[in-house]
Design a protein around this nucleic acid. Structure first.
Lengths: 219, 219, 219, 219
DNA sequence: GATGAATGAGCGTTCATTCAT
DNA sequence: AATGAATGAACGCTCATTCAT
């Protein structure tokens, strides 16, 4: 009696999640309507409200599990003994790109593009906590890699620059029709180059700063 | 009679364009309504449809002049005798950011984020031509700056990386409530750092490549 | 087996009635949803439809017991030996107000304000019978209090006037957010005054009528 | 050109107002939908939004002109030299009843039955100002009629009681299918009796109070 | 007997667009 | 050329109700 129904319910819920994931991923959060999701999921639009409180909740629930998983992965990378700090940072950057390509809905959540307020307004929201933790991870990896003090203001600037580049990479291809695999295949060396470039640049910047200092002090 | 009318018509059309430019620029494409544009232009919202087929057509037409102007500016920068190639490239990058901050509509157009399909579908579209020319300019500036062959495949990768970073910068702040001026005031040194970092990185990359080559040939 | 089931069924039905009584009483008919009732009753919302044809039928059925109880109370008051007719009438009026405050659903039922059609359309409806009996009680109490003939047309007018005032009192506060207790605490002396005023007025009216008569006959 | 259109627009607006007046009057504010109003008015539901900002605005606009008129009438009554204070007060009460019968939408506005927040929340709202002025007029008339101090707390209680009775009278018949004329024809003597009764009662109450005082002071 | 799943009708509102003049 | 009037489709969401088990 209940077994079959439970199964059916889970199926419906999953089909809604699948539909929403796909549509949000393809066309972004706010251009997709509940009715479209329902149609794609093969149910009535009211059915969605049985499983999810509202459109935004759907998006959030959609995102939590993969984000949790991502956090675990990034933490694992950071704590691996076998790799250098540089390798770790690059691995983390690449993993974030890969992850966002695989979960195209993540773009508006990570980079809170309009209409999805995942930001300061409710930092208590689990998803915001997670988001912040992820970016903190990224900053820490960069700090260890550059071996600068975590209060050094240059770390903030460098973090931002990483963020911009990642945002750009992901934003550029989020609405692409190519699959994650195709994109990674075609462009991963470019992405590698991007992160390496940044790192090289950051290091030189730091040296410049030192030299400047030296120059200043010597003169 | 017809003379006067023509003039009047042109005036109306221009006032619509001006209004749309301003509003789209300030608040982006889809939060602005036709009625708001009409109000600002001092005409009825139906009048807009006399001159422009629909909202999207209006956007495209309206985007041309500022893009033309931008193109002119960038071209001017590129052809100035007084500056080094590096200075030119940085100036171009900064100008593009500034321009996109001032014209918030440009974000979806430049980086063709969904909803406004300005892309492959109709590469003949004047606006797409212009867009491509602009990015070509960027690439050329970078090429001259790095002094590598325009067919060097590394140039394509580096161009893309610049594009990502610019996309990220602009995308991060396009939906911000801060004005263009505030943003530039607050963050322009970070943006400078970003572009300098990229350049430093690119150069080192090129050297690495050379060394690799050397190593390869020696061994 | 059937015995147990019957019992269980009756239990469920009663818990639904109890829940609906409370919720309707607290918040009125149309702000309460079937799901809320079900939740409070500890059953599924579909279960309600097993016992009651629809929301309105539930309301009607649910209104019977308290109305029956009210009728009993008012009858008791009317038949008490210890009180004067005036005390009885006032007690009845106050009890009706108190009752309607405690059972906010009663307002639309007693005074058949739209949405719940309990009126002439089906005078056979048990609830309408009861309603009419209650108002008949009120009239009888007033008659005994004023000691006029039950066919005296002035009794009808006076009854109506009482009805208006009670309707006004209850209607004024039914949608208030104050609890029944708070309202009674704050306003019961005003209500007392209202009923006393009416009674004083009625009596004087009767005297006036007599005097008129006297005058008429004397002159 | 514009003449005909203006006329047509005014017609539409009036038909919307007429439809809304009738429907609100018949079935109350919140059970009536915009689409129903539109249907009755013979236009699309979106057309309503051309002329009225939203549903509540429609109700308010519907009410202002008649309320203004009523205020004028009541003021006139109060300032007539030829009548006694008692005549004036009774005339005012009767006029309010008559007015509400003629404008059945007024019921929820005057007596702010659920969902129409015409109350404390925004006392600045023109309609609320007007409403308060009207009730102030009523109180003043009563005060002059009873010749008691305007700060006498009994005046407040008496005013409330009048309010209840008027609320009751109007509430009882607002949803009636009888026309205003029919109702007044059939019941105006009852209403007269009601107000006379109240007045007689109030006066006696005041005397009682005096006697009490006397008793208190003498003893 | 009882339930969770699912639905359709409907809500107020917005907006780009078309029609008649 | 230009406009005000008018519309239909759509939005997110709620609710009483029915269906299959």
């Amino acid at each position: 009696m209940s077994r079959k129904q439970e199964l059916r319910a889970e199926e419906t819920k999953q089909s809604i999640l699948a539909a929403a994931t796909q549509l949000f991923g393809e066309r972004g959060y706010d251009t997709v309507t509940m009715r479209e999701i329902a149609k794609q999921a093969g149910c009535s639009h009211t059915t969605i409200y049985i499983y999810f409180h509202d459109k935004e909740a759907l998006l959030h629930l959609l995102s939590m599990p993969p984000l949790d998983q991502l956090k675990q992965q990034l933490t694992d990378i950071l704590h691996t003994a076998q790799q250098s700090a540089e390798q770790k940072w690059k691995a983390i950057c690449k993993e974030m790109v890969r992850f966002c390509f695989m979960n195209k809905t993540m773009y508006p959540i990570f980079f809170n593009v309009r209409a999805v307020r995942v930001d300061e307004q409710e930092p208590e929201l689990p998803i915001n906590k997670l988001r912040n933790e992820l970016f903190a991870l990224l900053t820490r990896a960069l700090q260890q890699c550059l071996q600068i003090d975590s209060n050094d203001e240059r770390l903030l600037a460098f973090s931002r620059i990483c963020y911009y580049t990642m945002h750009g990479i992901i934003g550029t291809y989020t609405h692409s029709e190519e699959s994650a695999e195709q994109l990674l295949e075609r462009l991963s060396t470019t992405f590698d180059t991007a992160f390496e470039t940044l790192l090289l640049g950051f290091r030189q910047k730091l040296h410049q700063g030192d030299n400047h200092h030296e120059n200043h002090t010597t003169v």
